[in-house]
Design a protein around this nucleic acid. Structure first.
Lengths: 108, 108
DNA sequence: ATCCATACCTAGCATAACTAGGTATAGAGC
DNA sequence: GCTCTATACCTAGTTATGCTAGGTATGGAT
């Protein structure tokens, strides 16, 4: 379970530039060192949701000669949402950290 | 939304000693500096779930003269589960952190 | 020719946490 | 005495989220 942070992670994966769904899954897997190996059934609906919400836009790559791919890009609203979600993550993780007690934020 | 980490936070709130539901809510609120102001409808079912799972045990305080309270304590299994959940949180938050990119773990 | 990796999609399920109600007692203020 | 608030517990039903489990199709390697 990604516990409500999937949207932020997907948006972050697109920050470096447009990508298609399958590539996004790979990016997330490698960036998280394998921890987030997300099934397609998780990611594709999320992409649709994010596009619906106006945070992503998509375009099909021209199919003649190549395999069809839907390439997603961050919209302006998506970039803003990502920034907000990063802040929210910071607040959230800080709060969990102190709630779990046991002191320091990050074990060295 | 507590995003799946509620159980860990509740268990952590009981680590210092037994407490009743209402007090647990207060503890969580103060420990998180107000970030987690949980409705009772969130916490009570969680307590029941955790007791069902054998991670907590409960006892009613004797009602004569005082207000009825159900006091929860960590079981041995609960203590072990808390330790495991702390580790899981560490792994999870680390993975989110790197997935969100943007470098350093904690902005000073 | 067959298989696997790539690439997309959806319906339906499970779970989590919240909303929105309900009950009841103790103490403070009038 | 009466009312109001804080304390203290509970549950049914809603919502969102992510997953399972299926389906379709193409390109490249064997």
């Amino acid at each position: 379970m990604l516990k409500g942070h999937l949207d932020a992670i997907v948006l972050a994966a697109l920050e470096a530039g447009p990508a298609h769904g399958y590539a996004i899954i790979e990016t997330i897997k490698s960036r998280s060192a394998g921890a987030f190996d997300l099934p397609e059934g998780t990611v594709y609906p999320a992409l649709h949701r994010l596009e619906q919400a106006g945070l992503l836009s998509s375009a099909w790559t021209p199919p003649p000669g190549g395999r069809r791919r839907r390439v997603y890009s961050l919209t302006k609203a998506g970039t803003a949402a990502l920034a907000e979600k990063r802040k929210a993550w910071g607040r959230f993780s800080q709060a969990v950290q102190t709630s779990l007690g046991g002191g320091r934020a990050w074990p060295a």
